[in-house]
Design a protein around this nucleic acid. Structure first.
Lengths: 349, 349
DNA sequence: GAACTTCATGGGAACGTTACCACGACGAAA
DNA sequence: TTTCGTCGTGGTAACGTTCCCATGAAGTTC
């Protein structure tokens, strides 16, 4: 076989061994037409014998395409962002493109460092969940890019991919109504977050469409943590409820905290309090009861972002915002107190 | 400022603008000595003005160092592996090295594809959790590499980084004994897994050291899933126990499933059954009660793997196996039925 | 003051590829 | 026979760096 151990085989080694010029080798490997059957054969054999693997650095250098894509997300350790990265990676692999993954920790300084690394690596494009609220100049980013996540909302006229919060909220409100909770309490995130406003507006619209006064809804707020959810729920329990006791929580971590608070108050979920989450984190499957929640399409967002990026690189660029639909995951944290259910129970079913 | 919008600035553009040769620019940027103060100044200004960023492709081409490292793990979506990747990424960033991350899904074919991509990208080294049980020839991998995880055990005489299972098991057995569970039941993974044998042997050693016959321990086995843990626990509950009822579970997912089974049997954890997990997955913090478990040092494994790789690239290569210590995280799934605790309770404390 | 060292700089080759142009051979149309 | 397109092929110039060698100026030693 004679595979050179020290040095990697180059296209010239292959050419020599096959007794042709490197141009011919390049043509064979590039799948171009007009190659004699014999030449193709000898080249292929030589490639196998030498264990030749094209040098992407050289290809990138010459062709201007590095075959690399970059993605900057807040934290690869966060299950949602890991899903996004996974989707992006799988999609990129289909086009023989490798992915450079960076975690910014919501830190503008780290983000800037990572973006510099991407420029240096001459990635063909970047997928970014922006943390800085203003970049010097979007056009001078230095590479094609797609924004992802709700923070992309800050940049109008920019191609971005995110989840459809309005549709998700409708999904949640529909199931709540169906289960007999027409006016659930709301547990929201901090006022500073963009997603909060969209969430709230969607709930209001849903209420108005059903002739329910949105002002009637109990509202608590906290930050997106288990502890935040726990304290917010404790506060909620001291307030005056009307009708069924259900809470629509804008974040799964908070929902899990809320569930703990219910238990600590000596109450049961879902018998005494129903909880609906939002995010679809895996931990929701292991709580007791399992958390009924609305799952954001993390993987799809990654896939779609890569596709947009490839389109843009190929010159077919749009300046649109893409919202992907969310999905309801039913587990056990929602009680059914609708009339229909009551009838079913009375009938012994 | 005159930043060229279309083309990226090259070292030649910088040289021209500074009125020096490209060699001088390279020397300034490379931090070499013997540069006149004036030349350095003009070069630095020109760099700022042109927005020059070195082309890593060209650097890699010429110097033989791509500034890229690869990591192939089973699944970036799995919290443990995400931690590993995060540790590796953070450590690599310190040396201005970027990380190419791939998920193999425990599939040897995907693994081979990813390894080829890494070779093509001319990464300076690779961190691999091996899935194929034999590679043609380790020396012909084509790049420096470090194995990680327990599957690395299959390849002797290979540099690898993993967690110290023996120490972890000792940690677990110690706390169990301390809490009054000298002979806990064991819930193990499938026989095919390497980690299982090591886990079992460590438990046996611990028992023998305390003059406990290991054969006395109840043992159930299943696969590393929630469902597996649930069914194994159901079986365990039908068996005859001696002494305190505690289970040392070899995997957190199984432990969570076991906890569900306890609840489904109308029993309580930890009052009726104590459960100790193994892994340290985040979901363990959200169960009720919180899962007491032994945390594997995921992030540290990533950090250490990169460091070994860099050492090896620099020529300081060792052929050793590195085992990193695990950590006990106490939450609420372990009851204290020791005599000391009984005394404390009797004393009203 | 000649010979030698040190310093600051410039010039050119090389890394491995692809894109382009040029060339000879061959068959078809004039 | 001449002219022309087509096919298969080889040669060469980039791409943007770094590394090495050459060069001249200035300073040092005998």
């Amino acid at each position: 076989m004679n595979i050179p151990t020290g040095r990697r085989a180059t296209i010239i080694d292959v050419a020599k061994r096959a007794g042709v010029s490197k141009s011919t080798v390049a043509r064979v490997l590039g799948g171009s037409a007009n190659i004699s059957e014999e030449a193709r054969d000898r080249v292929l054999k030589a490639v196998a014998a030498t264990g030749y693997e094209p040098n992407q650095l050289a290809v990138g250098m010459r062709s201007g395409r590095s075959g690399l894509l970059g993605i900057v997300i807040p934290d690869i350790t966060n299950p949602f962002w890991a899903e996004v990265a996974r989707g992006a990676q799988d999609r990129a692999a289909k086009d023989d493109i490798s992915l450079l993954i960076f975690s910014s920790d919501w830190d503008a300084h780290k983000e800037a460092t990572h973006l510099r690394a991407l420029r240096r690596a001459r990635v063909d494009g970047a997928i970014i969940n922006p943390v800085a609220d203003n970049f010097d100049d979007l056009d001078r980013f230095g590479m094609p890019f797609v924004f992802i996540g709700s923070s992309a909302e800050r940049f109008p006229d920019t191609l971005s991919v995110g989840s459809n919060i309005a549709q998700a909220v409708r999904l949640g409100m529909d199931i709540l109504v169906e289960r007999g909770h027409p006016a659930p309490a709301l547990m929201l995130g901090p006022r500073s977050r963009l997603a909060r406003a969209r969430f709230l507006r969607a709930v209001h619209e849903h209420c108005i469409a059903r002739d329910v006064d949105p002002e009637v809804l109990l509202v608590e707020e906290s930050d997106y943590t288990v502890e935040g959810g726990r304290s917010a729920m404790a506060r909620l329990l001291t307030r005056q409820w009307r009708g069924s006791r259900a809470v629509f929580v804008a974040n799964d971590l908070m929902a899990l905290g809320a569930m703990m608070a219910v238990r600590e108050a000596g109450l049961r979920c879902p018998e005494d309090i129903s909880i609906l989450g939002f995010d679809g984190i895996p931990a929701g499957a292991f709580s007791w009861p399992g958390l009924t929640t609305i799952e954001k399409p993390g993987r799809q967002i990654g896939v779609r972002a890569v596709e947009c990026l490839l389109d843009q690189i190929a010159g077919r660029h749009q300046r649109e915002r893409i919202y992907l639909p969310c999905r309801l995951v039913e587990r056990g944290s929602l009680a059914d107190v609708s009339e229909a259910a009551t009838v079913r129970v009375a009938a012994g079913r």
